[in-house]
């Protein structure tokens, strides 16, 4: 019986690990933690996750699973294109924006604008659903 239980547990651990690796293509960021938070638990459903990552001292880049785009005007256009393709595949998907606390607004705003442009390009029948990622303050 024991080898059978071993194999079953190994299979469970294997699938848990694989599912986490597939899902975890998101960089760790020092997300804002408003107190007291009026945030929501992220609703279920498809998400297009855009992380804004510091790339050196003053440079930034937009990170999506499988894509790294420089945070400049051309990058914002490329981002809008990728998000539009994703919205065409799944118009109900939400665009989740993940940015660290000290990210300047001038780097975040183009992501929201790209989401808006993408929604228009994909002709989705409703406003683009955006989620602003925060972290729950452990002391709150």
């Amino acid at each position: 019986m024991t080898p059978l239980i071993d194999v079953v547990f190994l299979l469970i651990v294997f699938f848990v690990l694989v599912s986490r690796i597939v899902d975890e293509d998101r960089p760790r960021l020092d997300l804002p933690a408003p107190v007291p938070a009026a945030t929501l638990i992220s609703p279920p459903g498809a998400k297009i996750i855009v992380s804004i990552v510091a790339d050196g001292s003053a440079a930034w880049r937009y990170h999506m699973p499988g894509a790294d785009i420089p945070a400049d005007a051309a990058g914002a256009d490329a981002l809008a294109h990728i998000v539009a393709e994703s919205l065409q595949r799944d118009p109900e998907a939400a665009v989740q924006v993940r940015a660290g606390q000290d990210t300047p607004w001038e780097v975040v705003a183009p992501v929201l604008e790209a989401a808006r442009v993408a929604g228009r390009a994909a002709s989705i029948p409703h406003p683009v659903r955006v989620q602003l990622a925060t972290t729950r303050n452990q002391g709150a």
Binding site: V13, V16, L17, R20, R28, L31, A37, A38, T39, L40, I41, S42, P43, A94, Q96, L112, A115, R116, A118, G119, R120, I124, H126, P127, V128, R129, V130, Q131, L132, A133, T134, T135, R136, Q138
Partner: peptide, 19 residues
């Protein structure tokens, strides 16, 4: 493996008019 050691993420929802 099952324990999530990262802080829990939550969101604000925002609708951006696209039309």
């Amino acid at each position: 493996v099952a324990t999530d050691f990262s802080p829990a993420e939550e969101v604000f929802r925002l609708d951006l008019p696209a039309l």
